[in-house]
């Protein structure tokens, strides 16, 4: 009986976990998605960010939440890069394309739930929410950081370990690269060599790569310095022993004389 209960619990857990997904596993539509060209539409039907969000929600089966301020911006912002020709988006490219159109129009995308129903929110950076937008950043462990590259409108926070780098010096010297403290940050943390990075997916990935390259260069420089130091120590001790040999020989000669 006990065994049956355990099995029942296991089966339910397995079924539940199979239903639960990952926040970054976005649904992929069955077929390509076509976005109309604004030039083909009457002024009143022009394709706005609101239309784009509605289309994305429909084909992926997700639901969007927007505060009223953001909604006003979404209604009044044309999906301008689409002004030319109609655009056909391959199903697997929909997520990154959608996010690209959002970010070029100053909208941030944040998934809220990974189970059904899947909810996400879009926030305009032109609203008061800009000052608190960092709190929507998703934490991504360093070993999964590559996944962030495909999410240009999502904010991520991660911790990068750079064991050979003086993190305080690096973060101070690179601070000028961060133009918007609301959406980007680089903080030295830990007595060890760690840096907390926050920013849009591709930016966080490339900064982490930059830090890794710098850290590797620093590691080589440290190794080089150590080798040079060891060589100079070896030279010194060789010179000392040579000097000893010479003085020893002199001593012998003196004694011989």
């Amino acid at each position: 009986m006990k065994l049956s209960l355990v099995c029942l619990a296991t089966a339910i857990l397995v079924a539940e976990s199979a239903q639960a997904g990952d926040l970054l596993d976005f649904p992929i539509p069955d077929s390509s998605v076509v976005i109309p060209a604004n030039s083909d539409l009457a002024d009143a039907d022009e394709f706005t960010i609101e239309d784009l969000i509605a289309l994305y929600s429909k084909v992926t089966g997700q639901h969007c939440l927007m505060d009223s301020e953001t909604q006003a911006y979404a209604t009044n912002t044309l999906a301008t890069p689409l002004a030319g020709e109609a655009m056909t988006i391959a199903p697997e490219r929909l997520q990154v394309t959608f996010e690209t159109f959002l970010i070029v129009n100053d909208f941030v995308f944040t998934p809220l739930t990974h189970g059904e129903p899947r909810l996400f929110t879009v926030t305009s950076l032109n609203t008061g929410a800009r000052s608190t937008i960092k709190s929507l950043a998703m934490y991504l462990p360093p070993d999964r950081l590559d996944e962030a590259a495909a999410h240009p409108a999502m904010l991520f926070t991660t911790v990068v370990n750079v064991p050979h780098t003086d993190v305080r010096q690096v973060t101070t010297s690179l601070r000028s690269m961060f133009s918007d403290p609301n959406t980007q940050q680089m903080l030295p943390v830990g007595n060890a060599h760690a840096i907390v990075l926050t920013g849009y997916g591709p930016n966080v990935v490339s900064l982490a790569q930059l830090l890794a390259v710098a850290d590797e260069a620093e590691r080589r420089a440290i190794e080089e310095r150590r080798r040079a130091h060891e060589e100079s120590k070896a030279d010194e001790s060789a010179e000392t022993s040579q000097a000893c040999d010479v003085s020893g020989a002199k001593g012998v000669r003196v004694a011989g004389a």
Binding site: H63, L65, D67, S68, T113, E116
Partner: peptide, 18 residues
């Protein structure tokens, strides 16, 4: 307002989380 684009169907078992 939630600003939902359309009605949202939620199973009761997920309703508290949502």
């Amino acid at each position: 307002s939630l600003g939902l684009g359309g009605p949202l169907r939620v199973s009761v078992s997920r309703l508290d989380d949502v």
